[in-house]
Simulated scan of single mutants.
Amino acid sequence: MQETRQAARQRRRRRRLMVGTTTGLVVTGLLVCLAITMRPDGKEDAARAAATAVANAEETSSPSPPGKTSPTPSPSASASPKAKKPEPKKSKSEKPKGAASPSQTSSGASSQKVPGTSSLAGRIRGSVTYPGVATVYEAGVGDGACSFGPSSDMMIAAMNTTDYETSKACGDYILVRAANGNSVTVRITNECPLPCAPGQLDLSEQAFAKLAPISTGRIGITWSLVSPSSVGTISIRYKNGSSPYWCGIQAIGHRNPLARLEVSTGGGWRQLTRTDYNYFLSPDGTGCGKAIRLTDIYGERLTVNGIAVRPDVVQSTGVQFARH
Results as ranks from 00 to 15, higher is better:
Lys239Tyr: 14
Gly253Pro: 00
Arg270Ser: 14
Lys82Gly: 14
Gly299Ile: 11
Ala51Tyr: 01
Leu302Val: 01
Pro198Cys: 05
Gly24Phe: 03
Ala251Met: 07
Gln315Pro: 02
Val231His: 02
Thr189Asn: 07
Ala50Asp: 04
Gly220Val: 12
Glu94Lys: 05
Val141Ile: 14
Ser107Lys: 13
Ser91Met: 06
Thr28Val: 04
Ser242Ile: 10
Ser316Tyr: 03
Ser242Tyr: 09
Gly42Asn: 02
Lys85Glu: 15
Thr60Ser: 06
Ala35Phe: 10
Thr273Trp: 07
Lys113Arg: 08
Asn180Asp: 02
Ser151Ile: 11
Val114Tyr: 15
Ile214Glu: 05
Tyr137Ser: 05
Ile156Leu: 11
Lys168Gln: 14
Thr117Tyr: 07
Ala291Phe: 08
Asp163Ser: 10
Pro193Asn: 13
Glu262Cys: 10
Asp153Met: 05
Leu203Gln: 06
Ile124His: 03
Gly142Trp: 13
Asp202Tyr: 07
Tyr164Lys: 11
Gln104His: 07
Asn256Trp: 08
Tyr173Val: 15
Asp143His: 13
His324Cys: 07
Ser264Gly: 10
Phe321Tyr: 00
Arg15Leu: 02
Leu201Pro: 13
Thr161Glu: 09
Asp153Ile: 14
Ser91Pro: 11
Phe280Lys: 02
Lys97Pro: 09
Ile156Tyr: 05
Arg39Gln: 13
Gly253Trp: 03
Pro66Leu: 10
Glu138Arg: 09
Ile214Arg: 04
Ile36His: 05
Thr129Tyr: 01
Gly285Val: 09
Leu31Glu: 13
Pro81Leu: 00
Ala109Pro: 02
Trp269Ala: 03
Ile234His: 02
Ala178Thr: 08
Lys43Val: 14
Ala145Lys: 11
Thr28Glu: 09
Gly116Leu: 14
Met1Lys: 08
Ser74Trp: 13
Ser215Gly: 11
Ser62Leu: 12
Gln250Gly: 06
Ser64Asn: 08
Gly122His: 00
Val263Cys: 05
Thr166Pro: 06
Trp246Glu: 10
Trp269Asp: 04
Pro193Lys: 14
Pro73His: 05
